[in-house]
Design a protein around this nucleic acid. Structure first.
Lengths: 156, 156
DNA sequence: TTAAATATGTAGCAGAGGCTACAAATTCAC
DNA sequence: GTGAATTTGTAGCCTCTGCTACATATTTAA
């Protein structure tokens, strides 16, 4: 076959939508970090301390996985942990846990305000909270305020 | 120190909330699969074919990463791909792409209906769509219907 | 037609996050 | 205090998703 009468009409088509900034691995591990500090804060609040085994049970993974992740979080300055001792949050870890907690609560309440059953809202929020921008979070808060107002003062 | 007067009061504290079913690695790779088939369908629709390089540009990763992932998707029966040829969706890949597309559209429209700017809605939807259960998706659709009705017939 | 540009493939490395198996430390109960 | 149970650590394996460097195939343009 002649090369000019090629079958494939391979267009160049470089710049189309390009809508993905692509959440990279760093974003993934940042999500993990948030989950961890959130749970650690919760454990300290409810049981007095956070142990590797507790995290493992919460997360449904083995203690080995948790231990390795805790090492990483320690490298990143979010937690402190000495061998055979419990886990503590650093100042920045504590800050992150509070932010994550707030974000989580807002997402849960927002979903519930839409009529999503509580347990589903909880579980969906786990995943959603890491992908909600500040703009969207603000929109959630506004919607929450509106629906609370509507509840207090039913339409005449 | 005597062993009875222990300092640490290590409680047992096994079963607390346990709210994480924990999105495992499979879920992660399922998200990747959805992103890929969605983009492949879009590329085929807009440019006529899907090439590794196009996917790489869309995703902001190298062609090597894409090529390896395409191999996996081929193993999983979602796409077909021969060396130096373009990528096609199988029946199940096409089905998945349509479902993902629908889900994506709903999330975007829902966010926009809350007043989130279009580009933010697009970008947030990328992440959120993978974590929305069918219940929550249904709630989104209902809310959309309601807000569309409200727009057509403004309150007296 | 042939050379350059582009696209694809392959080899090999890294980090995150899974696992099992086994060793060692700590805590608990007697 | 001592032994059993529990917790933590270590070694070593896996997959997925990133990368660079380099080789090869295909397209494109002169």
């Amino acid at each position: 076959m002649s090369s000019t009468a090629a079958i494939s009409v391979r267009k160049k088509s470089s710049a189309i939508l390009h809508r993905h900034p692509r959440r990279t691995r760093e974003e993934h591990s940042q999500e993990t970090a948030q989950d961890y500090v959130e749970i650690i804060a919760d454990l300290i609040g409810t049981t007095g301390e956070a142990r590797v085994i507790d995290l493992a049970r919460r997360l449904g993974v083995t203690h080995v996985t948790v231990a390795r992740t805790i090492q990483r979080l320690q490298r990143e300055g979010l937690v402190t942990n000495r061998p055979y001792r419990s886990i503590f949050l650093t100042a920045s870890g504590s800050k992150l846990s509070k932010e994550s907690r707030r974000r989580h609560e807002i997402v849960v309440q927002f979903l519930e305000s839409l009529g999503v059953p509580a347990h589903v809202a909880q579980s969906d929020a786990e995943g959603i909270e890491h992908h909600v921008s500040t703009e969207t979070l603000r929109a959630f808060v506004q919607h929450l305020r509106k629906s609370k107002r509507a509840k207090k003062r039913p339409p005449p």
